Amino acid sequence: MDWNDPDTLRDLADRLARGADEVITVQGPDGPVTDTVERIVARLGMPELGGSYFTFSNENNYMIWTFLKRCWEQGWLYKSRDVMPWCPRCATGISQHEIVTEGYREMTHPGVTLRFPLRGRPGESLLVWTTTPWTLTSNVAAAVGPELTYVKVRQGDEVFYLSKGTISVLRGDYVVLEEMKGTALEGWTYDGPFDELPAQQAAGGPQAHQV
């Protein structure tokens, strides 16, 4: 399948308009690919359909720079002024996406608090907060604010370290044992949530976990 071919893209657009759940088969470089029209469109540019959207690929980056270099040599690049939407509050430009979607909506995203056991400190753990739990499989570090105040808390038989401002996440009785700045935690190592996975071990993830 030539995913850069306009006729192919128009055909997919027509099929998508008629019914996104229609199952179709297209030819990929390694053989046929069968899926719904909607999912085929979502996979355009992926290797199985004969393309590449890997922005971290050196080949792609070099091609982009080569293209820009040739544009410069032809005199097609120039410095000038343009009119653009501007946010006076944020002192930054506003993208077209932010305009066509009629700005931002106020939303509340759920957060996840989890425990990272500290190495060399039996019974002690970091309490880590994130709104992107799907990134935990590739976690390599826990970030702390150097000047933020953190607390060492005993709850039952366990000891937790967390920021003083988020102590409300604890449920039940607890005792604050000590307060410290984030710099005091720097360099500590911990066990990640997926260290047993072969992919993590092969990539050296367990050795990388550090505050």
Rank of each mutant, 00 (worst) to 15 (best):
G145W: 11
A91P: 00
W65E: 15
S52E: 04
Y104K: 02
A202Y: 10
L127D: 00
Q207M: 10
V159H: 02
V41N: 00
A203G: 01
E48I: 07
V140T: 13
R121L: 13
D157H: 13
T166Y: 15
D35Q: 06
D5T: 05
R115N: 03
G172I: 00
T92P: 00
W72Y: 14
A20E: 13
P122L: 08
L162K: 01
P193D: 06
V112E: 00
G75S: 05
E22D: 12
A42E: 08
T108A: 11
G45Q: 03
Q207D: 12
A208Y: 08
L49Y: 02
D191M: 09
T132N: 07
G156V: 05
R18Q: 12
G156A: 04
K181E: 13
L177T: 08
P6C: 08
T66C: 09
F54K: 08
T166H: 13
E147S: 14
A208W: 10
G187T: 11
P198L: 07
S125Q: 05
A184W: 02
C71L: 13
R15E: 07
D5V: 03
L162N: 01
V159M: 06
M180K: 03
R171L: 12
A42G: 10
I64T: 07
L136Q: 02
T8M: 09
G75I: 12
V41D: 02
Q155M: 14
T92I: 10
I64V: 12
A13P: 00
L16P: 00
F160W: 05
L44Q: 02
P133V: 10
P133K: 05
P47D: 08
V151C: 05
G145A: 12
S125F: 03
V175R: 11
Q27I: 13
A13I: 09
L114A: 09
I99G: 03
E158H: 14
L185I: 04
A91G: 00
A143E: 15
N4A: 14
S95R: 15
R15K: 15
G45E: 01
F54E: 14
Q27L: 15
I64Q: 11
S52T: 09
K181C: 09
E98D: 08
H209P: 03
E124C: 08
T130C: 01
G45V: 03
V169H: 12
L148F: 14
F54L: 11
P193N: 04
E38L: 10
M84L: 15
P206A: 11
G205P: 02
I24F: 01
E98C: 06
L162Y: 02
Q155R: 14
F160V: 06
V151K: 01
A42H: 04
T101E: 05
R70M: 12
L126W: 02
A17Q: 08
P146C: 06
D35M: 04
D30H: 12
Q155S: 15
A42K: 05
T92W: 06
C87N: 07
E178I: 07
L44V: 05
